[in-house]
């Protein structure tokens, strides 16, 4: 008898779907509220700190009427709340304002940088998972043996060594000595192959420490799961050690791994400043760094807002992933 035609199953499924929909709507409301609070906090902090962008641009010896004219042109003479609402309204309609320094729309500026940072973070994350999954499984399966020891030592190194050092090592070996990859710069996406080659080394440098952390989290989660009663049940059913590990332990160990993955994506997107500098990549990290030093407040606000948006969305997706993995979370409201 197929399960799909059973009326009870259908009702249960419908119930679950209704619960899911309510959960999703509630989470979306929370998401929007967090974004709004974040926008207020960011604007207050950035515009509230000392350091007038107009006087910074004109230098210390500027004439007062020139300064006043520039302030009026930049909208800095308007009241604080009005400026906030103006900025927020712009954000909602996709108009991020005009950069003080570059005199170009901020939206275009950020878009160009995201075209580098987003793929970089994505590739780094995929690499980190691709490295961590087999290593974590191997270490957990061969716990307290030589291969486990080697993995643990390797990850210790991966966590201890800063990623820019890896970056320089990669440049020295793969770019300078063997010339497989470019040492830096970004040619743009007109030639996707070249663009990917340019992103390879920075992605590896970013991924290595993350992979080390992820491996350790996966290993300890797996080892904990392997001690559970249902693993013993699986072995009593005739599953080999390896199959019990991949079929029963892995999925149960995924929750902590997903948590770390969510955190890592946010970090990779925003925290790649050093790597971007090592490889001269025009990414978000370098943009925000330059904008802060030049008091380009409108750019700072918008980039931070984009990052907050990314973090909140990633958290939201992580929560959805929990529910996808663990059936016990699906019916909880």
């Amino acid at each position: 008898m197929s399960a799909g035609i059973c009326p009870l199953t259908v009702r249960r499924r419908r119930q679950t779907l209704a619960l899911m929909r309510r959960y999703l709507i509630r989470r979306l409301i929370v998401l929007l509220a967090s974004l709004w609070v974040a926008s207020a906090v960011i604007f207050t902090l950035v515009e509230g700190v000392p350091g007038d962008p107009a006087s910074f641009m004109l230098g210390v010896n500027a004439a007062p009427d020139t300064l006043a004219a520039l302030r009026a042109q930049m909208g800095l003479d308007q009241p604080f709340v009005w400026r906030y609402l103006h900025w927020l309204g712009g954000l909602l309609s996709g108009d991020f304002g005009t950069s003080f320094t570059y005199k170009v729309p901020v939206a275009g500026l950020i878009g160009a940088r995201l075209a580098v940072s987003l793929p970089l973070a994505g590739i780094a994350l995929c690499l980190s998972v691709a490295l961590a999954l087999p290593m974590g499984l191997l270490a957990a399966a061969r716990r307290a043996r030589l291969s486990d020891g080697a993995v643990m030592a390797g990850t210790q190194l991966g966590i201890a060594v800063p990623n820019f050092w890896f970056a320089m090592l990669l440049v020295v070996l793969l770019a300078v000595r063997w010339q497989w990859f470019p040492a830096g710069g970004f040619p743009g996406w007109s030639d996707p192959l070249m663009a990917l080659r340019a992103l390879t080394l920075p992605a590896i440098a970013l991924a290595l420490p993350q992979a080390a952390i992820l491996t350790r989290v996966l290993r300890s989660a797996l080892i904990e799961t392997l001690g559970q009663d249902y693993i013993r049940t699986a072995r009593a059913k005739g599953l080999s050690r390896a199959r019990a590990l991949t079929r029963h332990a892995l999925r149960n160990a995924l929750i902590p791994v997903l948590t770390i993955l969510g955190l890592q994506f946010s970090f990779l997107l925003a925290g790649a400043i050093i790597i971007e500098n090592v490889f001269y990549l025009p990414g978000l990290g370098r943009l925000i760094f330059q904008a802060i030093t030049q008091r380009d407040l409108i750019v700072v606000e918008s980039v931070v807002m984009i990052l907050v948006f990314a973090v909140i969305v990633v958290n939201f997706l992580t929560d959805l992933a929990y529910a996808a993995v663990d059936p016990r979370l699906r019916r909880r409201t």
Binding site: Q228, D229, R232, A234, K237, G238, N252, V325
Partner: peptide, 24 residues
Amino acid sequence: CQLRGNAISMIFQEPMSALNPMMT
């Protein structure tokens, strides 16, 4: 592995934790 679950089977004390919570 070929004998377990096939010629000899076993059930355990703790039914609450003896089944994989993520599988139907």
